[in-house]
Design a protein around this nucleic acid. Structure first.
Lengths: 334, 334
DNA sequence: TTGTATGCGTTATCAA
DNA sequence: TTGATAACGCATACAA
């Protein structure tokens, strides 16, 4: 491992000069710079970012929380899409991404702030945690620049990125109403998720504007299996419903499965609208009508905002556009 | 940012003692240790891994190459599944994962070795690069422990993890033969990919054992669109074929699309077998018969091997099991 | 234009 | 059981 010291020695100059030559300072003679560059190349020199970080107090790394980075969450592409979007932006900067796991029991006791400070990341993108996470406040009020995904909280160094869940769910509700449905239910996520409240709110708003109210709200946990369970319960308790709004595509797909198990089909027996527009949505049969979120864009914008924060811009909030994608799982009530 | 120096000052001891107390050395008085621990807690101390790395010459980070981490590769879950698998293993160790981008033009000129040395990673997992990548040799022969995914090359510090592509493709060929097909074609990936050669080899072996030979081999580039293109060309040139083996599920899905565009259906007009068993495979219609690779396991085993290398184990090769998953896109020739 | 000296936060060596 | 002190590789204030 060659260091600037080695270069200095073989080039016959001081480490200071080497450092300045390598970093493109103007106050170094062209001849010596050439010589230094050349010996650096010959010695196959690579700067040690660790050492640089220590003295600069900047690690040029961005932390990305991937708690619960488990197989189920791989299926739901959400976390990976955010990661991919963030990475796409960051790859065009001089930052690198470091993955923070919090699902391992070992690190469970560490707060997000501790993780950040130990690894000395310059900033962090936090996603996939619950609104009542005990360590959330701490990081929001901490001094590590931070961007939250789908959690609307601001701090002096904290901004957030999210989709307008109220409006998205409202569109889903409006869609059902436009199609003439009246017996409508919802399969929501768990109540600790901020998006659950928002989507319920937006959906109910659309119904109430037409003088309707929800027949029932079941609570799943966003997974395919919970969607399946909920639909079974739903049909048993309220066989009259003709339309169901699911707070995630995965739950909607589970609901589709349950429907098949009951010998029924969508959209003939039940119109279903999901949320997220995950990759699978367009490939299942029937293709899922859903509220599309640009999840990749969510990660991209989060990274962009974070890099902005690192350049001393003010914290902000970004709302990513949504769109109702009408496919085959919803149709006019007949 | 409190340091051990601060702790030393307020606890009235030397930094040496603080360091040893915090790291659980035995040669420190219980009383002083208690005091140190307590003040560390009060001062909300978090150790600076950067400083530690510098002196220990170990960063406790593992680099993961995610070159071409683009949206198309998100659709194909391969890279993300490997990432997820690697992360799953690593999250149970005391290593962290750092993502290395090489798709950005800026970093294109840097070799993998340079990336590793600059970030001082203890080891690296390399995936998604071509066999003729000019920088591959360098890293294989370098001194950074390294595990290659799907590239069979060994070095003093380099092992690899892959699936048995020859055997997998052989199974696909055997499947067609068992179903009575005789006019068989293949849509392969590009020739720079090692897996392309392997899959062709295995598939041809199965056919030749039954006295058959391939009607045609088209070369795509593993993407959905290329599969679509290839199938169009194939049908036009060889309308007699009854079965096609695609070297990736994505290409198989593209082929399915092309078939629909031609007003034909699978498996009635054409039996199709894919490769990878990506998530989509079971959700498309018809559900895709494919050779399943445990991609998550590939990443998991790669990480496991790498951590082994970091503990001075010898480089090794691991073959991940494959399995032919028979679904609806293939049927008996009639 | 160049060099000397100092410090970043930590661990390790050695002596007390 | 403890504490000075020197490293690790780099950047920078200051002096020359």
């Amino acid at each position: 491992m060659t260091t600037i010291k080695d270069i200095a020695k073989t080039a016959g100059v001081s480490v200071t000069t080497v450092s300045r030559a390598l970093n493109g300072y103007s106050d170094v003679n062209e001849a010596t710079r050439k010589k230094i560059m050349e010996t650096a190349r010959q010695l196959n020199y690579a700067p040690n970012t660790i050492a640089r970080s220590l003295v600069m107090k900047k690690s040029k790394t961005i932390g990305l929380l991937v708690s619960g980075f488990i197989r189920e969450s791989v299926k739901d592409n959400f976390m990976l899409d955010v990661l991919s979007g963030a990475n796409d932006y960051i790859s065009n900067t001089d930052y690198d991404v470091i993955l923070f796991n919090t699902n391992s029991s070992k690190q469970r006791e560490k707060t997000y702030q501790q993780l950040c400070r130990e690894r000395q990341v310059d900033g962090v993108i936090i996603q996939g945690i619950k609104t009542d996470d005990p360590y959330l406040e701490e990081i929001v009020n901490g001094d590590t620049p931070c961007v939250l995904v789908d959690i609307p909280k601001m701090g002096t160094k904290t901004g957030y990125v999210m989709t307008d869940n109220v409006a998205g769910a409202y569109d889903a509700g409006k869609h059902f109403i436009d199609l003439g449905h009246e017996k409508i239910a919802m399969i929501n996520g768990h109540n600790q998720a901020f998006v659950s409240k928002e989507r319920l709110e937006g959906f109910e708003k659309a119904l109430s504007e037409s003088g309707l109210s929800l027949v029932e709200v079941m609570n799943g946990d966003f997974t395919e299996e919970s969607g399946r369970q909920c639909l079974h319960d739903l049909i048993q308790q309220h066989p009259e419903i003709t339309a169901v709004f699911c707070a995630s595509d995965l739950m909607a797909i589970g609901a589709l499965t349950a429907l098949k198990e009951l010998g029924k089909t969508s959209p003939d027996d039940l119109s279903i609208v999901g949320y997220d527009d995950i990759l699978l949505a367009r490939y299942v049969t029937p293709a899922l009508t859903t509220v599309s979120q640009d999840i990749h864009g969510l990660g991209y914008e989060a990274a962009k905002m974070l890099v902005g924060l690192l350049n001393d811009e003010k914290p902000d909030k970004t709302i990513i556009k949504h769109e109702l994608i009408i496919r085959d799982s919803s149709q006019r009530f007949q």
